[in-house]
Structure formats: C-alpha cells, structure tokens
C-alpha cells in the first residue's frame, strides 16, 4: 500500500522534506511511525516522541492507534498554534 505522507513546521525541517510517497504494510499510525523511525536518525529525531506531535489521516485529527488500511494521506505536525 502506498501513502502520501506530509510533514509540517519543525517536523518538516527535521526530516528535510515536506512530502513523500511511502510503501507500507502498517495497519495503524503507530506501525507507520515505527517504520519511519527505523529508517534513519532524521526520522527518529522528528518522530520518536509521540507526545510532541499530532497526526491527521485524510485531513482528520486522529490518535496513534487509528487504522490506516484505507488511508490516502497522512500528515505529521506539531501541536497547532492558530488564532
């Protein structure tokens, strides 16, 4: 399964890309995160601390146990600072 993965703010800076397409067999966000962290230290630095960032699946905020079998787009970003 191929997914579009988006990164924003300091997550984007640590990873060095705003967007990429990733092949994954992960069934949950947590599984995908573990796959990404295992790639290299840039991903580990950006994504290891699950309390420091949020995730959206197909543009809806979800938790890390959310299932992603039918997902198209997953985004990782810091807690939001709008307003």
């Amino acid at each position: 399964m191929k997914l579009d993965i988006l990164y924003f703010a300091w997550i984007r800076e640590r990873i060095g890309e705003p967007k990429e397409r990733v092949e994954t067999g992960a069934s949950t966000v947590r599984g995908l995160v573990n796959q990404l962290i295992a790639r290299n230290e840039r991903y580990a630095a950006a994504l290891s601390d699950l309390n420091s960032y949020r995730v959206a699946v197909d543009q809806e905020l979800v938790d890390f146990d959310h299932r992603i079998e039918h997902a198209r787009e997953i985004a990782f970003f810091p807690p939001m600072t709008g307003g």
């Binding site: 924003f8 703010a9 300091w10 959206a56 905020l61 985004a75 970003f77 810091p78 807690p79 939001m80 600072t81 709008g82 307003g83």
Partner: peptide, 24 residues
C-alpha cells in the same frame, strides 16, 4: 478551537531571519 485545532503553525521572524517555532 481555532487556536488548538486549526492546522496553523507560527514561527517568529527576527532581524536575522527565521527564529523559533511558537510552542502550543
């Protein structure tokens, strides 16, 4: 809700360029 649930991220720009991201 706009403050904590709308996907915006603020960063300070100083005289020497981009500075820190504003923490929630």
């Amino acid at each position: 809700y706009l403050k904590s649930r709308a996907p915006f991220w603020k960063r300070e720009i100083g005289p020497n360029g981009p500075g820190a991201w504003v923490a929630a």
